[in-house]
Design a protein around this nucleic acid. Sequence first.
DNA 1: CGACATCTTGACTACAGTCAATACTAGTGG
DNA 2: CCACTAGTATTGACTGTAGTCAAGATGTCG
Lengths: 246, 246
Amino acid sequence: MVAYKKSSVACSECQIRNRAVCSQCDDDELSKLEKIKFYRTYPAGQTIALTGQDMDFVASVVTGVASLTQTMEDGRTQIVGLMLPSDFLGRPGRQGVMYDVAATTEVTLCCFHRKPFEELMVTTPHLIQRLLEITLDELDAAREWMLVLGRKTAREKIASLLSIIARRYAKLHKTPPNKAVDFDLPLTRDAMSDYLGLTLETVSRQMSALKKDGIIELEGKRHIRVPDMERLIAEAGDDADGGVLS
Amino acid sequence: MVAYKKSSVACSECQIRNRAVCSQCDDDELSKLEKIKFYRTYPAGQTIALTGQDMDFVASVVTGVASLTQTMEDGRTQIVGLMLPSDFLGRPGRQGVMYDVAATTEVTLCCFHRKPFEELMVTTPHLIQRLLEITLDELDAAREWMLVLGRKTAREKIASLLSIIARRYAKLHKTPPNKAVDFDLPLTRDAMSDYLGLTLETVSRQMSALKKDGIIELEGKRHIRVPDMERLIAEAGDDADGGVLS
DNA sequence: CGACATCTTGACTACAGTCAATACTAGTGG
DNA sequence: CCACTAGTATTGACTGTAGTCAAGATGTCG
């Protein structure tokens, strides 16, 4: 596993300062964290950790997208989590990872060695409080996704995934409501199928169908334009905003 | 919503004392919790809370099984969590519930009003630490279930559910390994289908098939005997122990 | 330009869903 | 004690959605 270290960035300038696990820390607590943090960058496709391995650090995603994947003996795989900037990787209090962690796009992590981080957690209530919040949000997202996997049609699944990503982009770029949303898919068709519990072919077919029906527009394979978010959300079968990954 | 109060039980005698959210509290902390706790019992089928409603308390499940359900406008439903004894219900720091909570069997809860519980959390590190652990475990269980919903066949889904429940019973009753396991299903066929993302008919057919193949034996509709756990687990497509809900 | 990844499309198949009839069980009241 | 009902479960026949297998198109990078 080759990982590249990157020069450090001051916490106060960090893009995920106000959402990550450190977001509720005061200056004093932050400086303690700053002392033990280090950065790592992984190229797209790189493995970050494998099931059963010890992971000696925990980390916040700073940029890029990482995925958590579970695999059956016969090779069937399911992505059980997409980790986006400010999401937290790793499980304090337990060393083994339960799934494969990989970089979906190029990913930069803000890492902390597990031991010192766990010690800090005991003395820093703001840290554990925020971590609990983040974990509860992830639990909500996972449960929302159970509905997608268990009950939605292929078309609805695709629309659900696209609307989640589109909504995140819209929020990030402050796109006004009722305006078209524009973004790059951070996933290959294959990764999409693994996240949605479908085959690659079905994903491709449904993408074509949504395009034919004018719900989405494609430029190349990866760049997507949604002229009318309302319609996309309606295709997803959701009443209002689901809020997964939000 | 009718709920019946039950006379209080001393925390020191509580059956879930060593697994629930209170399990790491010392005597002093426990007595604070004891002051604000109260019991509620719901008959099977009763609603405990509805999506969007304010839930003014959080609770540990003491006995019975509760379920968390998400519903789409057109009526499709998915159970996104089975809450068993020692599991924690409700979300400190947020009042609205994200899903319907209902009693699957008769359920007794050990409840705390939200406000005092949240105040205790700030001053009681053992409480928030244990809550984080419980939440992380639930997140693992939810992710494990995503693999079941996204990638397993109907037969494997049924076998997965049965082996999870059977394993819990075996642990509870200290059944020696390599011995037959015996238990009552706490779910109707309909609830099973909602948990597994299947139809009631498919559940019924696969139960019959597993019975015909000698993987399980049925006494009445609800009582199940697993002569050989190894075979059941093999049918679930799992290599080793999944550990969901464990 | 050519080679490999990724993606699309088509034809066929199969697994689970739908609709419908029937069976079983438990509880109620005559 | 049996008959009736309501809820729950099983089984059958048929259909439809997504999976499988396979060919070909598009895109990217050396």
